[in-house]
Design a protein around this nucleic acid. Structure first.
Lengths: 218, 218
DNA sequence: CGGATTGTTGAGGATACTCAAGTTAGGTGG
DNA sequence: CCACCTAACTTGAGTATCCTCAACAATCCG
């Protein structure tokens, strides 16, 4: 992509800031913009008809999100909430088609974005279908570590607030079960918890649990 | 897209036929081609490290599949098996990038394909996370009916062989549980089963079960 | 310091899985 | 065409996992 092309794209973008806890868009809202996350961390959730919440995915810097148009939908299928202070670029949704048609490189990029998202979704489906809770939670925390962990001397630190409830919604279980599992792991020295804090002390051992090699600690 | 453009694309395609039970490609194989299904019905499965199988999705005529390149993968992440005699168009994977760059309309199409796939995957995640087995099975058979059901006088016929094991792998449960649920539904007149056969007699009532409105029959 | 949010822990129970044995249907070969 | 064989399915019993309900403790924030 040439510099003028980039200019063309960037010049039509608005830059927006969100406080921790603020919503970028809400489920059901008319999708009038699409976004790229510049900075921070978002959580995309969906609420079921019965009111249960599920975390669909995390958005990390560089990610394209809110692309309802690509799903052939007029509204946003989920709610995007900032977990920490976040910065986005936003474009009017009308520009989506224009961009896709005039900048093939962008289209290829969008395809790959959706590709990795799809792969992750399928991995989660497989997990939920075949694995027991402890393994799913192990996968979840490892994914968190991978997406946005910071290496420290004591292990990998999840550097933004994650509650047990969050982990539960990502793993398809309840916060009670997550609490019990993390307590057991903490006793075994695998992790270090805290209120909305998490440090992976022994990622390698967690990986063994995730892969079902260790018999599990419960 | 112009007629010459279409010509250009079609002329580089090979047409391939598969018998029921035959594999179009296998999980782990080098992804050297991508496909469009012209006719028939495919099942895409993944096998976990422990050997458990999960049905990732069904492929119906018109669907693009085997697009490992879009997932940035050198190999196929799953196995595609013909459930009935099937016909595909196939292109060398090397043409993928070429097509995407030179035919924006194709790229947009690919994005939308992946979009609906992603939406379905997320719906399944939500189901698996929050719904009990009977509801998931209801969703599964309704999806089957929607994708490839034929309206008959007695209801909607799934017009290709589906085993209880298949339904189980799509719902994230065991064939035993599926058998019990279908037996109960059959007693209530909601469906009519048989060896690898399924007729949805009362889709509306199944929808109620899927949506958790009816207390369930078990 | 108080209220609210988040997390802990226990007891009990339901859902759905595993294990196990059998039955039915369909295909195959004699 | 019948006997056999296998794959698909059914059904039962026992049980493990994990959820629900419940009460309480800790932490954070203003």
């Amino acid at each position: 992509m040439g510099a003028d092309e980039l200019d063309d794209i960037l010049s039509s973008a608005a830059s927006l800031r969100y406080d921790a806890g603020g919503a970028v868009f809400e489920q059901g809202e008319t999708a009038d913009r699409f976004f790229v996350l510049l900075n921070g961390k978002l959580r995309v959730t969906q609420v079921t008809a019965e009111g249960q919440q599920v975390i669909v995915r995390m958005v990390v810097p560089g990610d394209l999100f809110g692309i309802a148009k690509a799903l052939r939908r007029p509204d946003y299928p989920g709610t995007a909430t900032a977990m920490v202070e976040s910065l986005t670029l936003a474009w009017p949704m009308a520009l989506w088609d224009v961009f896709m048609k005039s900048h093939p490189a962008l289209a290829v990029n969008a395809i790959q974005t959706m590709g990795s998202r799809l792969q992750e979704a399928q991995a989660r489906i497989r997990e939920m279908a075949t694995e027991e809770v402890e393994r799913r939670v192990a996968h979840t925390v490892l994914r968190l570590g991978h997406q946005s962990g910071k290496k420290e001397l004591g292990g990998i630190r999840i550097d933004f607030p994650v509650s047990k409830q969050d982990i539960a919604e990502m793993s398809g279980t309840t916060l009670h079960t997550v609490s019990r599992i993390l307590t057991a792991w903490e006793a075994a020295g695998l992790v270090e918890g805290g209120r909305q804090k998490l440090l992976l002390r022994e990622p390698h051992k967690l990986l063994l649990i995730a892969d079902g090699i260790t018999p599990g600690l419960l």
